[in-house]
Each structure stands twice: as C-alpha cells, then as structure tokens.
Amino acid sequence: MQDLLRRYGTGLTTIFCLMVAFWILVLIVLPNFSMLFESFFPYLPVSELDGPKDVFTLQNYEKVLANPIETNWFGIPITIPIHVSTFVDTVFFSALVTFMTLVLAYPLAYFLAKVASPKSIPTLLLLLFIPMWVSEALRAFAWYIILTFNGPLNALLKGLGLIDQGIRWQNGIFTSYDAIVIVLTYCYVLFMLFPIYTAITSLDTNQIEAAEDLGSPWWRTHWRVIIPHAKPGIASGCVMVFMLSAGSLLVPTVVGSTKANWFPQTIYTWFNDALDWNTGAAYSMIFLLVCIMFVILAMRVFKVKLSDIAK
C-alpha cells in the first residue's frame, strides 16, 4: 500500500482501490448474495409478493431431491433423484475432463518448456493459440459436425478401413457423455497447458540433468523432480479446467446427447424455461458450494496449498 501510494500518488491509488472494490463488491459479492437471498424465498406471482406466502423457506433446495429415477452407474442399478444424478454425472465427467486435459497438456507443456528449441516456441504457441481466436460456440459447432453420423470423423475412419459402420459419437460409445467429454477437453486443454508450461519453464534445467546424471530414468525424473516443481501449475490448471467444465452450458447443449444432462442445463431450465429464478438460484448455490468443496477436497488429497495456486 505504501509502495502504491509512493509510486502513483493519492489520487490514482484511490481510483485503483475504488475500481477493485467496485469489481469485487458490486460485480461479484452483491450478485451472489442477492442469489443466496432469493434462493430462500418461494417463486410467486407478482400479486402475492410481500404477501403471507412470501416467507423464508428451504423448499427450493428440497426440489433437488425430488423425482427419483432408476438409473445405473457402471452397471450397478440405483434409484436416485434425477437432479442429483445429473449433478453427480456433471462432477464426475468434469473430473474426467480435468484428468484428460492434464494427460494431454503435461507432455506438451514439458516439450514446449524444455525440449523444443527456443526459436520454434513462438510458432508453436501461435499454432496453439489460433483455434482460441474462434469463439467457443463455433468450436463446439465444428465438433458437432465432426462427430455427426455422416461427418468427417466417421468418413475418415471408414476410409482408413478402421470401421465398417459409422459410429454414433453423440450417443456415445462408453457413456452418453463421450461427446461432451471430448469437446470440453478440446476447449479447455489450453487452460491446463499454460499454467503447467509456465511452471516447468521456471525449473532449472540443471536439476533435470542432475537427476539424470545420478542415474534416474526419465519417468523418475518427472515423478520426483519435474512434477513436484510443476505442482502449483498443475493445481491451478486443474481448478480452472474443472470449474470451467462443470460450469459449461454451451458445449453440453450443442454436442450433448439426449441422455446426457449437464447440471448447468438444469439450472438454465429453471431460470429460462420455468422462469423460477428462486429455484434456479438455489440450484446454483448448491452447485457452487459442492464444486468448491470438491476442489478443496482434491487439494487436500494432492497436498496442494491455496497459496501455491495463487503463485
């Protein structure tokens, strides 16, 4: 603060602080509190607002436990409320997307940071960035086309003689969420790549060489030296990809099969189709809370501190 004052003077410093305060309070804290508040009141016609029915209630939260359906998870049949089922699927497949992006991004990040010649880095980064210049909606639609029954992917596989019959990718081979997982992985892989790339770049190459010189095979050097160093980058990449995937509305809407429901779609339905903002707010709150808890739990398991991610 002293430093800020000395460098920019009282006037500019005040403006900076006010702008940050406005951003945090008015654009983040206030809307969330408004949602939290609304979520505890019933959805009523305008005429009954402030009437005897407009009282504090938990009924919006209870709705998530209504409508049990019979489904099966990995072959085990269970009965579960439909929205809880969607919720669990969303968290599970978001975690899967996070894992897939990590598996794809880590080797690439290592290659960019330590293997590729410094001269080729700008070109390689540009190649990675170009797809990001296209909007997420267009990229999702492009994947919709790629994955359709008579689309280029099936044509290619048939042409190569790998398959006889076209595959209905959007219905899924493993689960009905295949298409969503593929496209989310594609959309968010760079959010995983860059934090890891930055982390590995900051590792002294001598440490990798020292490990090798001491007899370490490549995998142990990664396990004991490079990954521990890159852990903050991996952690922030994972948090970002998980939260973005779990919160994605567009990708599941465009490429998801009829059987694949993503929780943000459920929330969207409450807000937009049912026009029941109160229940939508309650669902959002549950979703936010559980996702944060999931992330904290994952950080505990992998022994990552919050301060690591902030770096």
Partner: peptide, 21 residues
C-alpha cells in the same frame, strides 16, 4: 551411453540441488 548409465557424477556450477526434497 546416456548420462544415467555412466559411472560419472557431475557437480553443477549452480549445484542443482533439489529444493523440494
């Protein structure tokens, strides 16, 4: 023969100790 197969041990100019261990 790769460095990890040679009977040599190198002490680096900046030592390259592993700070996380």
């Amino acid at each position: 023969t790769r460095p990890n197969q040679r009977p040599t041990a190198l002490i680096f100019q900046n030592l390259a100790l592993f700070p996380l261990m």
